[in-house]
Design a protein around this nucleic acid. Sequence first.
RNA 1: GUGGAUGUAGCUCAGCAGGUUAGAGCAUCAGAUUGUGGUUCUGAGGGUCGUGGGUUCGAGUCCCAUCUUCCACCCCA
Length: 457
Amino acid sequence: MAIQKPGIPKGTRDFLPLEIAGRELIFNTVRRIFQLHGFKPIETPAMENLSTLLGKYGEEGDRLIFRILNSGDFASKVEEEIWQGRDTGRLTPQITEKGLRYDLTVPFARFVVQYQNEITFPFKRYQIQPVWRADRPQKGRYREFFQCDVDVVGSDSLVNEAEFLQIIDEVFASLGIKVIIKVNNRKILAGIAQYIGFEEKLTDITVAIDKMEKIGLEKVNGELLERGLSLEAIEKLKPVLLLRGSDKEKLGVLSELLKSSEVGLKGIEEIREVFDIISNTPLGCALELDLTLARGLNYYTGAIIEVKACEVSMGSICGGGRYDDLTGIFGLPGTSGVGISFGADRIYDVMKELDLFPEGMGSFSKVLAVNFGERERNYCLPLLQKLRLHGISCEMYPEPAKMKKQMQYADKNRIPFVVLAGDSEISQGLYSLKNMKSGEQQQLPAESLIKIITHHP
RNA sequence: GUGGAUGUAGCUCAGCAGGUUAGAGCAUCAGAUUGUGGUUCUGAGGGUCGUGGGUUCGAGUCCCAUCUUCCACCCCA
């Protein structure tokens, strides 16, 4: 058989031990903070029924869902006409019924409805698992990546929104990443659309508002015209697009402009309340009302949140919002949820770029015992057992290889201590302990050796 | 899905306007050094030049297709 070139699918990655260590650091940080806020873990399968997934993320989202081909002789079951028709849109439903999950929010909504009698509302859960998107890979964009989701369902209170802002602040402060949190409210966007008389063009309007900073007023207006808005509506939208100033000022102007729109005013009121609640426990990071923030996931109905790293050019590293009726689709109406999702892989990339991972991170073993031969090895093994009883990771080099090789092994694996024991140590009942960083070496009995290593940072 | 760039050793890259046997640094392995790593010195292994076609006496080099990676758009973590 011909030798095949090793490789993995586009947009997926392997992880070396050091990379896992970095990712674990992120997972442990978010997990710790989620738990500090009373969230409980759940897991859901990698694959879901397509009926669960489709139609929840908009047209674009449906296209990006990985579909799983049915097992068995699926081809024979397809209707002849469809098989011959070569129409992908009609053929795929007949040959696929499962897909890889696209995010953790929709499977969670499904989960909540399915186990509604076994969970207690408000239900606070977190979930750290990979998701898959058939996107074209780019910097910070992968086809397989981890999301760390936290959500509350069954509570309308805006205290939840404020808590998530708090969580974001705590996570990124703990990781050492400077961030800015941008918030907006879908109701405000809906109010704007209503105000200019094109409620049904909400998506087009938000897309245009979103591009304001990038392409400017002229081009935005041109695009709006193309998308079917009237000149009159565009003129009415202008003061919104040109809105500048502090959050308070923006809200002031908006509440005047949107005074005839009930939803619009509701949105403004919600933002004000969230800001008010958060003022009791001020954030360390920047927080800003960004009217251009739209977010594509079309299940959001209230607050929308997005986080960007200040010192690195990268897409958003965390995002989320409130969805009022996601569980309704699965048969549980009137249950509102809010949540956010941390993009672990992008956070990893940001930390890597800013060199934020701690120095000793890659050291898995703390101690290596050098193997000089059978007698010496047997002398060291009980010491290793004792170290492990003290919770210290340690290992014996498996073969009596050359000293240089064993030392190199310790060095490459960032093992901070090496234990050496030959004839002279054995005859005295001691061990030589070498500190690999300083190069210092001393002969000690087992107890003091354990003490030194235990107290090593 | 649209547009652009890229691909030579495990990694980073040389390779003149097509012309002998495709190079370097780093990494790996071995030795210098039989109880002391990170520095040094010596040597070795490792390449279907992304893949498949084409042009040519001759292609790593030119042309086409395809794939990968990267960048922008779209969208998003």
